[in-house]
Design a protein around this nucleic acid. Sequence first.
DNA 1: TATTGTTATACTCTATAACTATA
DNA 2: TATAGTTATAGAGTATAACAATA
Lengths: 146, 146
Amino acid sequence: MMAARTLSRSEKAQLASQLRLSCMRIARRVRFESQSEVAPHQLSVLARLDDKDRTPRELAVIECVSAPSMTKTVAALVDRGWVLRTDDPTDGRQVILSLTRSGRSALRAAIRAREGWMATRIEGLDDEEIETLRLATEILQRVAAT
Amino acid sequence: MMAARTLSRSEKAQLASQLRLSCMRIARRVRFESQSEVAPHQLSVLARLDDKDRTPRELAVIECVSAPSMTKTVAALVDRGWVLRTDDPTDGRQVILSLTRSGRSALRAAIRAREGWMATRIEGLDDEEIETLRLATEILQRVAAT
DNA sequence: TATTGTTATACTCTATAACTATA
DNA sequence: TATAGTTATAGAGTATAACAATA
């Protein structure tokens, strides 16, 4: 990596602005180009259930939506056969939500649809550009996790 | 820039996946953190009117929504005093939409709200990371425009 | 009493179909 | 006839308030 000079405050602000715009445009393109049968908020929930089972309450908090809203979203996923409801044996108030086999495969398909567009774009770049994006991705991952 | 080695096909796919996720997470964070009084679809329309006046039809096509949907969105913006409707002097069927002074300032404020979060993140990075993001932003801009 | 989840109700954004006015 | 825009109507997704069941 070449020696990097210190950017002025306004140069940093400009970079922040352009980087934000680029990320939002790419996110938008990915959403638009990959028409899957899973709606965005449904996909979000399926993804949350991929690593572990969760309660509706947990999902509502994670997704920053109200409990009734999550009730509806979950009901739709159960209707589609993607999510299974189980009573919690230790707490009668709670239900445990888990992905069905079909839900997991719907999730995989939706993710593949999203990856497609981006993968095509990456393949059109040269080695140096790819290396830059590889380094940038590590930074963006940290930034997004902040 | 250090010499870049050629990534395998699957390494590229993995990079595409991680980069996509990072962009989407950042876009999501920006949307969530910057609670502005302008709804996302309204902001989108205001931004389209920033550089030039447009008809409802043009906006509907650009934003990929139906004409009636755009009618409603525009009506709300006119109600808020952010957009002005003018009859097209040469074609009685059309209306010309333009930003009012107040609409332009609402747009500016909403954009500033979005920039805030990202600018703070950028300022927390060191010179080399910033240089990487600067180079990556140029690539991402091209990719997003594809 | 506090917590989990649902139901009731309403608002917003979206869509398609049908309508009006103009070209 | 074709096009620009609106109105009518309906379907999601969201919210708050009120309720039921359980801890």
